[in-house]
Simulated scan of single mutants.
Amino acid sequence: MNDTSHHDERIAKMTFASVYPHYITKVEKKGRTKEELHQVIFWLTGYDDNSLQKVIDEKHTFQDFFQNATMHPNAHLITGTICGYRIEEIKNPLTQQVRYLDKLVDELAKGRQMDKILRTI
């Protein structure tokens, strides 16, 4: 993989609130719900409704978002390609965590069963 430090820095400074509406649009356009999106986010990060709303209201960066998250112990089971990168090969931990979330949102939008998205089977 090429030097991605500029890309990693850009992701770190991006606010979760700026991307969140795109997540909602993506899953709802494919017939999934905001509640299902929240279930995926809560599973990955340990956030709940109140803490997620605080992140959005206070415009936390992805760096802050994941720094304050409690990552699910099975997050490492999220593999595959997202945005042209193999998730398991991403060296920067923050970028990898953001791509974990992107992958879960993609799986939700593609109609994958929730138990598979949440790596329970």
Rank of each mutant, 00 (worst) to 15 (best):
P21E: 13
F66T: 06
S18N: 08
L37P: 08
K13Q: 05
K116I: 14
A69Q: 06
Q63R: 07
V19R: 04
F66Y: 04
A17N: 06
M1C: 14
K30P: 09
L37Q: 11
G31M: 14
E58F: 01
W43P: 03
N74Q: 09
H72I: 03
Y85H: 14
I11R: 03
K26R: 12
D64R: 12
T70N: 14
D8M: 02
A75Q: 10
L37K: 03
C83R: 15
T33I: 03
V105F: 12
I121L: 08
H6I: 12
T95S: 13
M114W: 14
Y47G: 03
E36K: 00
L101I: 11
T79L: 02
S5D: 12
D3L: 07
K116E: 13
N74E: 03
Y47L: 00
V40H: 10
V27P: 13
I82R: 14
N2G: 06
I11F: 02
L44K: 08
G111I: 05
L44F: 01
T120D: 07
R99I: 02
I41G: 03
D106G: 02
E88V: 01
A109V: 11
Q53S: 12
K103F: 03
T95R: 04
Q67C: 00
H38F: 14
M71I: 15
K91A: 07
